[in-house]
């Protein structure tokens, strides 16, 4: 699974691509760890899921643990641009009630950080 990321002031946008299943969820977890601990990211992490085809319960658990960790820093995890199948998985698992889900990365940045949105728009 490929994961790219880019920082916009105080928010990082990370974009995994592919399937987040029982075998690849560990890669997502490993990629998130340094972001969760980065002192310069004090508003949060936006996960751009435009390239994610599927997520399993193990993958959803990674998101839950990351969100919990960010809350201790008063920061957030947001998920954006869900593909239709992934959006259904979020709804069926009721994860759409416990994680912040947005139609687009821009919508997520709008909620999290005005400076980050400005930097995203300028990029």
């Amino acid at each position: 699974m490929e994961i790219s990321s880019r920082q916009y002031v105080d928010v990082v946008v990370a974009a995994p691509v592919g399937r987040i299943d029982h075998y690849s969820a560990g890669q997502l977890e490993a990629a998130l760890i340094p972001l969760l601990e980065h002192s310069g990211i004090n508003k949060g992490v936006v996960l751009d899921f435009a390239g994610v085809e599927y997520i399993s319960s193990v993958g959803l658990r990674v998101l839950m643990v990351a969100a919990k960790q960010m809350r201790t820093r008063e920061a957030k995890i947001a998920v954006a641009s869900l593909q239709p199948v992934v959006a259904e998985i979020f709804a069926i698992s009721r994860f759409d009630r416990v994680l912040d889900v947005y139609p687009s990365v821009r919508n997520a940045l709008e909620k999290l950080s005005a400076p980050a949105l400005e930097a995203f728009n300028a990029a």
């Binding site: 319960s57 959803l60 658990r61 839950m64 698992s93 009721r94 994860f95 009630r97 416990v98």
Partner: peptide, 8 residues
């Protein structure tokens, strides 16, 4: 339970 509840 739902998955969200079961792991939170």
């Amino acid at each position: 339970y739902s998955l969200a509840d079961a792991i939170s």
